[in-house]
Design a protein around this nucleic acid. Structure first.
Length: 280
DNA sequence: CCAAGGCCTGAATG
DNA sequence: ACATTCAGGCCTT
């Protein structure tokens, strides 16, 4: 029997969703926007701000969702094997910038860059006797020079970071609005931001904007679909054009349903483990 | 529309 | 050592 409501922290933190987490004295601490979260050994969250946050989406109907995505041998195996893996509900602005930084990069570098962004632009706080740097607010990054941002190691993405922050600051990107509209509208809006293409948009939508039907298609997911579902999704070309991406997304949601994002997370985790990819 | 090439950067590879 | 490749894409031609 599967315990659908269990939380496995190691699986969840090491699944490519978050980058600013670290273990101190056996306890996980992570930056989430203007807050620091601490997860004790029982999986209980304490936060620097004392605000409550449903970081692990505990209000989701996990049993219903996980059963609904268990359409075949692969998903059933992944859900069983990685029992306790959760989708995370992240701070939207941090998620937004994090995945702009992630493009054409790798975990270590993404993490390094984001840590620098916090150190150089974020507020320092002490929590449990440990110093943390919070994620900077939109205005700080919008007002920063591209030069300053570049010092964090973000390279050519630095101007995207500035422009993206300006768009949040000016309300062209309004996270509260995006949370409340449907997938396609939200995706259309955030795709106007430079540095946000199909994959990055889907990550932001899935991990911070309540779009559980988003299914980020990176080179790994393409490989997975091609390897395990050759007849269902029929990946033909190496490079995925916008049109092919949309078509594929439609096939995926038709197959896995409206909680496809959960299916993505489990399949991704399972395949990455095969290749012993570690994140944090 | 689609395909091809360039892009910051640094860890990993040869 | 040192050069080259590659990494959870995106944008421009």
């Amino acid at each position: 029997m599967i315990d659908y409501y269990k939380i496995n922290l190691e699986y969840t933190i090491n699944s490519g969703q978050v980058f600013l987490w670290k273990k101190e004295k056996g306890i996980w601490f992570g930056i989430n926007g203007q807050d620091v979260l601490k997860i004790n050994n029982q999986g209980k969250i304490n936060s620097y701000s004392k605000n409550r946050t449903d970081f692990f989406r505990e209000s989701d109907n996990l049993e219903g969702i996980l059963k609904s995505i268990s359409k075949d041998k692969m998903t059933k195996l992944a859900v069983r094997k990685y029992n306790g893996l959760r989708l995370i509900r992240q701070d939207p602005f941090q998620c937004f910038i994090s995945f702009i930084v992630s493009s054409n990069s790798n975990i270590q570098k993404i993490r390094n860059t984001l840590e620098n962004i916090c150190k150089n632009f974020g507020r320092s706080v002490i929590f449990d006797g440990i110093e943390f740097f919070l994620f900077p607010k939109p205005q700080i990054l919008a007002d920063a020079s591209i030069q300053e941002i570049k010092k964090c190691g973000s390279g050519y993405r630095s101007e995207f970071i500035k422009k993206a922050s300006e768009m949040v600051q000016s309300n062209q990107v309004n996270f509260e609005y995006l949370k409340n509209c449907k997938y396609f509208e939200a995706k259309e809006i955030i795709s106007r931001v430079p540095g946000i293409g199909n994959k990055v948009a889907d990550c932001i939508l899935l991990f911070s904007l309540e779009k559980l039907d988003a299914f980020p298609l990176d080179r790994w997911m393409i490989r997975i679909l091609d390897k395990y579902y050759p007849t269902i999704f029929e990946i033909s070309t190496k490079t995925i054009t916008d049109k092919q991406y949309d078509l594929l997304h439609e096939k995926i949601t038709n197959y896995f349903g409206s909680y496809s994002g959960y299916a993505q997370q489990f399949l991704f985790k399972m395949e990455r483990e095969i290749y012993k990819k570690k994140w944090l």
